[in-house]
Design a protein around this nucleic acid. Sequence first.
DNA 1: GCCAACGTTGGC
DNA 2: GCCAACGTTGGC
Length: 152
Amino acid sequence: MNYWLLKSEPSDYSIDDLQRDATEPWDGIRNYQVRNMIRDDIKVGDTCIFYHSNTDVIGCVGTMKIASEAYPDPTQFDSKSAHPDPKSDPENPRWLCMDVAFESKFKRTVTLAEIKSDPTFSDMRLVMKGNRLSVMPISKKHFQKISRLGSS
DNA sequence: GCCAACGTTGGC
DNA sequence: GCCAACGTTGGC
């Protein structure tokens, strides 16, 4: 099993929204590196950290599980969605998404500042320069440490 | 709201 | 294939 970190702006979709919905499509991904990870590497049952970006308290807020295989992201064909892609061919869709299932909400946010200041995380892609991927693999070690911090 | 660090697009 | 212009992400 692999571990991932998935970013979302809470004003768009938050951990509380996922707790309420239980399962939700993780859609709107429009980056080829991320698309390829979804297509090739992310498997049903993989565990993910839910990360809140672009907000007052930035950081890791809970965990979730991958709940489906990758499938074509319907929002790419919806002109009213946030990210329609008129160049995507319905016969050969460009963008994929997958369903995620709520697992847990942390007792507290494990903040980006905290992660940056802890040498345990110095080799984590999240804190390395120039990394803006909204989905990234993380090590089991980092996943377990973040889970432990969030549960305390 | 600013802007650095990307990624994408399209003219040539 | 190069690269300038433009768009996006996301921390601050």
